[in-house]
Amino acid sequence: MKDIKDLSKKLEKFIPKDKKEVTKNTSSLGIAMRLSSELVAAVFVASVIGYYLDKWLETKPFLLIVFFFLGAITGILNVVRTSKMINKD
């Protein structure tokens, strides 16, 4: 009985460490892709919104410029949020 307990203790030492490493390695690539796409998508969406608002309100370049910067802000905010969420896990 004692032997088994000792063995499982020994095993416990190894298993979590090993598992953690695997998930860390595989997901770092995923994290990189996630953050970059998050940043780009927000800028893209905001610019499209700005472009069509411009067309609709006939204020040609102004809203596009405003929304481009809003998109950049949103993108950075999204990246910060996503990395916070990843850190929490």
């Binding site: 796409s37 780009v40 998508a41 893209f44 969406v45 919104i49 802000i73 949103t74 993108g75």
Partner: peptide, 17 residues
């Protein structure tokens, strides 16, 4: 406005990735 853009950018970021 920022939150709405953030919400609308979800399908784009999901698909583009």
């Amino acid at each position: 406005v920022i939150e709405i853009i953030s919400y609308l950018s979800r399908p784009i970021s999901l698909s583009v990735r």
